[in-house]
Design a protein around this nucleic acid. Sequence first.
DNA 1: GCGACAG
DNA 2: ATCTTGTCGC
Length: 231
Amino acid sequence: MTTVPIPEGWPTTEERARAVQDELRARLVLDEPGPPPGTGHVTGVDVAYDDARDVVAAAAVVLDAASLAVVAEATAVGRISFPYVPGLLAFRELPTVLAALAALPVPPGLVVCDGYGLAHPRRFGLAAHLGVLTGLPVFGVAKNPFAFTHEDPAAPRGSAAPLLADGEEVGRALRTRDGVKPVYVSVGHRVSLDNACAHTLALTPAYRLPETTRRADALCRAALREATRAV
DNA sequence: GCGACAG
DNA sequence: ATCTTGTCGC
């Protein structure tokens, strides 16, 4: 596991953070389909916090996209770099996530993160931000609809309904298990929404949430427990 | 104007 | 995200 400082120049105010989003948004690449499902690596990233102790732990878990077997894992621990503010989640999660990705012994391939990409007040959520900073194809799968609305998808797995903002499709409510609450898929960088949904279905053979996020969630919690143990 | 709102 | 016991079910 690696320990990371908060980066130089990291925003400290909400105003500055929003300005950074507006600047970086111009570097988004949205016209690439991204890698096809079932090929190469798919990497899940997630973060866990202990606000009282000012500790954040991130995990990156690389899966073989065909078998969903774990290929590699890495964790990183740091100080909390930003408070939780809806719309500014990336400033709280990214420094540690970037360190965990950098610590991987293999290329991450396609990255799946918790939260949104284009489904964001300024069209620049966590997945988009991570994509621009790394250059990697990234999309997000969120567990809640944030401030967006959608029709209820049909009951069978694979059914979907557009997630709309001002009449524009910024993501999709996708049913990954029959009759179970959908997940919210949103493109980040260098992946199409159709392909992101196909990947999400390929990553959910047994549970509502993708194997990538389930694995990363378990690992970052373990890393947080370890980092805050006996202190 | 106020509140809600990814994690 | 996190605080938290037992419980129902495959």
